[in-house]
Nucleic acid binder design. Structure first.
Length: 687
RNA sequence: GGAUCAGUAGCUCAGUGGUCAGAGCAGGGGACUCAUAAUCCCUUGGUCGGUGGUUCAAGCCCACCCUGAUCCA
């Protein structure tokens, strides 16, 4: 059979920001697939790189007082260490900030320009004078033009989910310096997509999954918008040849980074980029998340096609990671960085769990932490690894550490399992890793059943050779599982290779019986997960957030102390202390935590806000609060407050108020609504 | 607001319109002791999100609704 020639990439992680478990959904599944291809004997090269350009990196470097280059170098080293720890098998992990990428980006652009595919258009953009730069959407904040929520980013409102352009924001301000930006015109370069409508329509249906293609085809109902590929200075990136002070937009040189990294890898072995990318026999696959399909399935193929490069064979799109059925959350400690995970848990546990859950679809994947512990402990350790543990240790202890010939039943079972091997390999090929894991687990169940039925721990007292035969069978079955698991658990498989004294496994080795050879000393292959380690990891993920907010608080505390020192005279309460009461008086006041579901200004009143509060009851309550001068309604939605829940309902001109929100009054007469320090179940009572 | 995907046992998920809706884990009971308190046997769990419809037959097809996730360049 002919060897396939395969190029595989994962999306380039942005160099500003830590890797987290969501990123790993992509890198790990790509790695599984690549290792599977290599074990099939195919020529499979896997490249990836740090995505290093763009405004966020430039600004971060500016804030830290270092050059962008220093920033990306630091990020690169950390990234590579983490990938290594997760057993990633890149052929080359590069950086988009390299000469090859500059040359390729330029040549692709010049080719497009030569063909007349680059147009110029004047664009209105917000410009911050004090920062001296145009502001991308994420760097402008202001009031949402749709719902009036304050402090929303320039690309969309997190309160009402509206999307808009930064220019539409009311009262915009620069997210970096807080200054007021002005609208400026600037000429930008566009790569027009509309001429390639027919090409893209056809390309989409053939080179990605139906869901993704369908999603993107929605845009084909109207003219396809051009893609702005240029950015004004200052910008950290590649200068556009023939232009003054213009740079390639980071999303242009990022995918080109796939090619540039491949080129560097090819050069190192005396080949060229063309030997791979342009080889008609070579297959090109991109693994990406569903958030960046438009770059990979519209811009990228159109760019390549027109610049004279082959377009990808297929774009494999996956969903996002949820943790415990919800979006990853920093406050809940489920926004877990790769580094934090590694401090508490072994990498291979996550690799195994992800493999158990990934099925090649675009659906989001759930990391249920309880399920995670269960899967690893029960399936990987209890069922699969236990076979090696009980088999190898007994054969070393009682049978002189040497395999014999398998007994008939083991041989029969092994033959049956091998018959399913092609099914496992097909599952790997279509990235249905969970199917492969299910089959391996079934093998482990049957092997454990056979082992128990044979009772070698009793048999060994009567017949050592018969025992040797049973254990040889058990270990051959286990070996088959280890071979099949190797794409997922490469380090684990390497230990099994050592145990059997064999060369690195390929799938072809699955056909061979191992009989009559010595068995090495058994060493632990996989550790059980202590649920406490998972708890600690979640706590640590909360910690990092706490320290962040604490540093702010500390500043304020110090400031407060300084002020006290300068003004020691004013120590009296702003308002006289009320008369002393007993605990029974306090108990009469029923204070509850409430979540603000909705808030709106009351028409006809300049003081009141109408709040809809969830107090944990079947029906939300309506409460009127006279805090309008201190709070915009939007600022309260989603927050928690404290309310007096047993206050007699009071009829007001605007409706009935079913309680009272607790707030303090500042010396200047403004209000401060009280809220719990950490999110609390609505309806919780204060004592 | 528009759209896409999802909703099946306590948890994670299977389930080409056709017998009584399945698996693993967790839970309960028993067996065993070689093995990382691992393994083996038996077993309790379900208005298949809701309502209507199509059909001899619906978890599956259609409509509407609810909930969640995501996208709107």
């Amino acid at each position: 059979m002919d060897k396939r020639k395969i190029i595989v990439t994962s999306a380039l992680p942005y160099a500003n920001g830590a890797l987290h478990l969501g990123h790993l959904v992509e890198y790990l599944q790509t790695d599984f697939w690549v290792r599977y291809q290599r074990m099939m004997g195919n020529d499979c090269v896997y490249v990836c790189a740090d995505d290093t350009h763009g405004t966020p990196i430039m600004i971060r470097a500016r804030k830290e007082g270092i050059t962008p280059e220093a920033l990306i170098n630091r990020s690169y080293r950390a990234r590579v260490r983490e990938f290594d720890a997760f057993e990633m098998g890149f052929d080359l992990y590069g950086s988009t900030n390299c000469d090859e990428n500059r040359a390729l980006s330029e040549s692709i652009y010049l080719k497009l320009k030569e063909k007349g595919l680059i147009s110029r258009r004047s664009v209105d953009q917000l410009y911050c004078d004090s920062c001296g730069m145009f502001l991308p959407g994420r760097f402008v904040k202001g009031t949402c033009p749709k719902c009036g929520a304050k402090d929303q980013y320039g690309d969309g409102c997190e309160v009402c989910n509206a999307t808009y352009n930064a220019g539409e924001l009311l009262e915009p301000y620069c997210a970096v310096c807080g200054g007021k930006p002005s609208m400026r015109q600037s000429e930008q370069l566009f790569f027009e997509l509309e001429p390639f409508r027919a090409f893209l329509r056809e390309w989409l249906s053939a080179h990605t999954d139906a869901a993704t293609a369908g999603k993107l085809l929605e845009w084909f109902n109207e003219p396809l918008r051009g893609w702005n590929i240029s950015r004004d200075k200052p910008y950290f990136g590649f200068a556009i040849p023939g232009e003054k002070d213009k740079f390639f937009y980071v999303w242009l040189d990022a995918p080109v980074g796939y090619m540039a990294t491949l080129e560097r890898w090819a050069k190192a072995r005396g080949q060229t980029l063309q030997d791979w990318w342009q080889d008609p026999k070579a297959e090109i696959y991109h693994f990406i998340g569903k958030d960046i399909v438009r770059f990979h399935c519209l811009f990228w193929p159109a760019l390549l096609e027109n610049a004279g490069w082959r377009t990808p064979t297929q774009v494999f799109v996956h969903g996002f990671l949820q943790v415990n059925g919800e979006k990853m959350s920093k406050s809940k400690g489920t926004f877990i960085s790769a580094a934090t995970y590694l401090k508490h848990l072994p990498a291979q546990s996550l690799r195994f769990y992800y493999a158990c859950k990934l099925n090649g679809s675009v659906d989001d994947m759930d990391l249920n932490l309880q399920d995670f512990v269960g899967r690893v402990n029960s399936d990987l350790v209890g069922k699969i690894t236990n076979l090696a543990s009980r088999g190898a240790q007994m054969i070393n202890k009682s049978c002189g550490g040497r395999l014999g010939a398998m007994d008939a039943e083991s041989r029969a079972l092994l033959t049956e399992c091998r018959a399913q091997l092609s099914e496992v390999l097909e599952a790997y090929e279509r990235r249905d890793f969970c199917r492969a894991m299910v089959i391996v687990r079934e093998w482990a169940d049957r092997a454990n059943q056979l082992f128990d039925a044979k009772m070698p721990w009793k048999l060994v007292k009567e017949d050592v050779e018969a025992t040797r035969a049973v254990l040889t069978g058990t270990l051959n079955l286990f070996r088959l599982m280890a071979i099949v698991l190797k794409p997922v658990l490469p380090v684990y498989a390497a230990k099994v290779e050592t145990l059997f004294g064999e060369a690195p496994y390929a799938f072809a080795d699955a056909a061979r019986d191992v009989e009559g050879t010595p068995i090495g000393a058994y060493e632990h292959l996989a550790a059980r997960i202590d649920p406490k380690a998972v708890e600690a990891m979640v706590e640590a993920s909360k910690e990092s957030l706490k320290t962040a907010s604490k540093t702010l608080a500390e500043k304020d505390i110090k400031k407060g102390i300084r002020q006290l020192a300068t003004k020691p005279a004013e120590v009296a309460f702003p308002e006289p202390l009320a008369e002393t009461i007993g605990i029974e008086d306090f108990a009469k006041v029923d204070l509850r935590v409430a979540s603000v579901l909705a808030a709106e200004a009351v028409e006809g009143s300049d003081k009141l806000l109408r709040l809809t509060l969830d107090v944990g009851e079947a029906r939300p309550r309506t409460v009127f609060a006279g805090i309008r001068k201190s709070y915009a309604p939007e600022a309260l939605v989603g927050q928690q407050v404290v309310m007096v829940a047993n206050l007699a309902p009071r009829k007001m001109r605007f409706g009935v108020s079913e309680g009272m929100v607790v707030a303090s009054t500042d010396p200047d007469g403004s209000f401060r609504v009280m809220q719990p320090l950490t999110p609390t179940a609505p309806g919780a009572r204060l004592h």
